[in-house]
Amino acid sequence: MGEDAVVTETHNTPLVEEATKKASVAWVAVADGPALALWCVSYQGALLVVSGPGEQTAPGLAEADQAQVTLRGDHGGRIITWTAQVSRVRPGTEEWDTLAPLVGAKRLNAPGPTADLVARWAADDCALVRLTPAGEAVHGGRLPAESLAEPPRPTPAVREVRKPFRLHRVRGH
């Protein structure tokens, strides 16, 4: 934490509430893993995140008890980082019947109707988790002097390098 960082002990400060309400993407880190950008839906002071087959990847989030959540502003700067209590919402419960359709309706580019999407999540064992503010919130402070950039993660994606396109032949003088 930076020298001027402010640590707030309360779980749901006005800044946490406001940033959470406006969030559509959150950077979530589980244990010592890297923070992953995950799309989310705000609901009653918490964030709802779905992951699993056919959805975004969030290794360890469904099994975790806690995670670090960072929310950023419109221009990419960090607004706040807070510790979240992670609770999984299970299919077949009243909570699932309420929350899964809410999240499904906000899913961009969803293949088919929301009811089909929610049924697929249940059948494919996708994880719907609720991230509730439950610890210290860190905000403010100066930016660190060193870079916080991480090296790119390994990927099977390969991009073919092609020769530049030429419209006409260039002659030498």
Rank of each mutant, 00 (worst) to 15 (best):
M1D: 15
G2K: 07
G2M: 10
D4A: 15
D4L: 15
D4W: 15
V6M: 08
V7G: 06
T8S: 12
T8Y: 08
H11N: 12
N12Q: 15
N12H: 14
P14I: 08
V16F: 08
E17F: 11
A23P: 02
V28I: 14
V28P: 05
V28N: 04
A31R: 14
D32R: 06
D32G: 00
A35V: 04
L36P: 00
L36E: 08
L36G: 00
L38A: 04
W39N: 11
W39S: 12
C40L: 05
C40R: 03
C40F: 03
S42M: 13
Y43D: 15
G45N: 05
A46L: 01
L47S: 04
V49N: 01
G52C: 02
G52N: 05
G54N: 05
P59M: 08
G60R: 15
E63S: 15
E63N: 14
Q66S: 13
A67N: 04
A67S: 04
Q68D: 13
T70V: 14
R72C: 13
R72D: 11
G73V: 01
G76S: 09
G76I: 08
I79F: 00
I79R: 07
I79N: 08
I80Y: 10
T81K: 06
T81A: 12
W82I: 05
A84N: 06
R88P: 01
V89Y: 03
G92T: 03
E94F: 04
E94P: 10
E94G: 14
W96Q: 04
D97Y: 01
D97G: 01
T98K: 07
L99R: 10
A100H: 01
K106D: 15
R107S: 10
N109R: 12
A110L: 14
P111Y: 10
P113V: 12
T114A: 03
T114N: 05
A115E: 11
A123S: 13
D124T: 12
D124M: 11
D124G: 05
C126D: 02
A127L: 10
A127D: 14
L128R: 05
L128N: 11
R130V: 05
L131Y: 06
T132K: 14
T132Y: 12
T132D: 12
A134W: 09
A134I: 01
A134N: 13
G135F: 09
A137R: 02
V138L: 14
G140H: 06
R142T: 15
R142P: 11
S147H: 01
S147F: 05
S147G: 05
L148V: 11
A149Q: 11
A149P: 02
R153I: 09
T155S: 13
P156V: 00
A157E: 10
E160P: 09
P164H: 04
P164G: 02
R166C: 04
L167A: 09
H168P: 03
R169P: 02
R169V: 04
V170N: 01
G172L: 10
G172T: 11
H173W: 13
